[in-house]
């Protein structure tokens, strides 16, 4: 895996926003560190020992003293990575639902210059692994994001994304909570830089489903997002 992109590994940073993920964070970080990536975990005010475990597993830890939400945490991680000469920034979920091997697939089109932005998609193929209820919710999210940003994507809310430095530098997430998933797509599309979707796998473990977004949260996310559009 790692050997296919050895030369730039110094410049590839994986950003993980984590809130109370002590149970899984060490495994997630370790797998990425072994893969040769720089890992920055933004501990978003966790009350467990997420920070210590991430640090021991080999990540740099940026610690929010109070919980500010995933969007805020990702933005902090982006800032850190960019200030440490990241050439490519990857966002990765803390709950262990992504496969570290997929990072390589996501980074490749950026390395070979075909794209500046690579978005992981659960629905491009492999969709058998996504539970039906989740697939319906994701479809809805795709349509919503498509209407708002004009981007035609198959999966709008996958936490696995890779960006070139110049793309990442133009992301400035203002929505602190979960609506950032639509916001980041908006901002990336606005850059006008070439964007592709890359099929990725997702593990739906009982843990990740428990920690993930519930359908009921969708209304809150849409509200946050629309509010930001109106009162801009």
């Amino acid at each position: 895996m790692a050997s296919s992109v050895p030369d730039l590994h110094g410049g590839i940073w994986v950003v993980i926003a984590a809130y109370n993920e002590a149970a899984v964070i060490a495994d997630v970080v370790r797998a990425l560190v072994v893969g040769g990536y720089h890992v920055v975990v933004v501990d978003d005010g966790s009350r467990d020992d997420t920070a210590t475990r991430a640090h021991r597993a080999g990540a740099v830890v940026v610690r929010h003293v109070i919980n500010r939400g995933q969007g805020a945490a990702l933005q902090s991680g982006l800032r850190y990575a960019l200030s440490h000469d990241a050439q490519i920034v990857v966002t990765f979920d803390a709950d262990g639902q992504h496969y570290p091997e997929d990072v390589t697939r996501l980074v490749r089109p950026i390395l070979d210059g075909t794209a500046d932005i690579a978005l992981g998609s659960r629905l491009l193929e492999h969709s058998a692994s996504v539970p039906l209820a989740r697939r319906i919710l994701l479809r809805g999210a795709v349509i919503f994001t498509g209407v708002m940003s004009g981007a035609r994507l198959t999966d709008a809310h996958n936490g696995l994304r890779a960006m070139s430095r110049r793309a990442a530098a133009r992301v400035d997430l203002q929505l602190d909570r979960m609506a950032h998933a639509s916001e980041i797509i908006d901002q990336l599309v606005l850059t006008g830089l070439p964007l592709i979707e890359v099929p990725v796998n997702v593990r739906y473990t009982p843990y990740s489903i428990e920690k993930g977004q519930r359908a009921g949260n969708a209304a809150r996310i849409v509200w946050d997002y629309l509010l930001s559009k109106w009162s801009r």
Binding site: H64, G69, D176
Partner: peptide
Amino acid sequence: MSREITLLTREVALLEA
């Protein structure tokens, strides 16, 4: 205000790191 708290939290976090 919430926005400002986030920005402040971020600065503190990055400085500390």
